[in-house]
Amino acid sequence: MSVKPVNSATFKPAIREKGVTLAEFGAVWCPPCKTLLPILHDLADSYGESVSVLQVDCDESPDLAGEFGVMSMPTVIVFRDGEPVERLVGLRPRSLYEQIIERNMAVV
């Protein structure tokens, strides 16, 4: 599985009703977002079907960024069973994303 680009029309259907979804809010011109993208692809490959990883371009979907209060990029919002449960602002180490995924998978 890989990172799935989504927009205002495809975002909500792409969030898992059961399980864990990571949604990265960023932009193509954002250097930390570019650095984060390979980490997200690696996480998507590592977890396969267990976790959905979505990518939202805030320039293309400013309504989604507003709805979720995204003020800085990248922002990664973790959804569990369709509800936002955690938020990471800024570029973080891969290990932190893994910890959050594992923690939220354990609750499911």
Rank of each mutant, 00 (worst) to 15 (best):
A27T: 03
Y47Q: 04
S46A: 07
D57L: 12
S50Y: 00
A44Y: 14
L37G: 15
A65V: 05
E49S: 05
F25R: 00
V51C: 07
F25M: 03
W29T: 07
A44E: 14
V28I: 08
V56R: 05
W29M: 00
S46P: 05
D42K: 11
P38S: 06
G26S: 07
A27H: 04
Q55P: 02
P38L: 05
D57S: 08
A44K: 14
G26R: 11
G26T: 05
S50T: 06
T35Q: 15
L54P: 11
D57F: 03
A27E: 04
G26Q: 09
D59W: 04
L37A: 15
D42E: 14
V56N: 01
L54C: 06
I39Q: 09
G48Q: 09
C30H: 07
P32C: 10
E24M: 09
E60W: 11
L36W: 15
D63E: 13
E49G: 03
I39A: 01
E49D: 04
P38E: 03
G66V: 04
V56E: 09
V51P: 02
C33I: 09
Q55F: 13
G66I: 08
E60G: 05
C58G: 01
W29R: 03
C58M: 11
C58L: 02
W29V: 02
L36N: 12
G48H: 10
G48S: 08
C58E: 00
P62Q: 10
P31M: 09
Q55A: 13
L37F: 15
V51D: 03
E24Y: 06
D45P: 11
C33Q: 12
H41W: 09
Q55Y: 14
A65F: 12
G66Y: 04
S50M: 04
D42S: 11
A44Q: 14
V53G: 08
E49P: 00
L43W: 11
G48W: 02
S52T: 09
S52K: 03
V53N: 10
H41E: 15
V28R: 02
S46R: 05
A27M: 02
Q55E: 14
S52M: 02
V56W: 11
H41T: 14
D59E: 01
P38V: 10
E24I: 09
A44M: 12
V56D: 04
S61D: 06
H41R: 13
A44H: 10
E60N: 11
V28F: 06
L64W: 13
K34C: 00
S61Q: 08
S61G: 08
H41N: 15
C33W: 04
H41Q: 15
S61R: 13
E60M: 10
W29Q: 02
D59F: 06
P38Y: 07
G26V: 05
H41Y: 12
V28G: 01
S46F: 02
P32K: 11
V51L: 03
G48C: 07
H41S: 14
S46K: 10
L64D: 14
P32D: 12
S46W: 00
D63C: 03
S46M: 01
E60F: 12
V28N: 05
T35A: 15
F25C: 02
C30A: 11
P31V: 09
A27I: 08
L43A: 13
